[in-house]
Amino acid sequence: MNEYLTLSMILFTIGAVGVLVRRNAIVVFMCVELMLNATNLALVTFSRQHGTLDGQIAAFFVMVVAAAEVVVGLAIIVSIYSTRRTTSVDDASLLKL
């Protein structure tokens, strides 16, 4: 079991560091997804460990929310790209153009 949790922690850390240091909005987005999936892995592991289904159900919810978030997030990134010709999150530091 500990291996799964270790993997989960590594993936989450990679994701978190990626969000903090990368500027490309797509990459930042992928890192967020990585963190979500690391969490999912931890949830499923704990579910298995405790022999209950709560963790697995929570993982399903996370997947649904992640799917919805991808839709909205990608739409925003496309819109930012179409107006600013860039996907760097640092260039979009103001709410106005």
Partner: peptide, 13 residues
């Protein structure tokens, strides 16, 4: 409130 996503992300973290 700098507008930089990364600094917000760091504060959340």
């Amino acid at each position: 409130q700098t507008g930089y996503v990364r600094s917000y992300a760091l504060s959340i973290l």
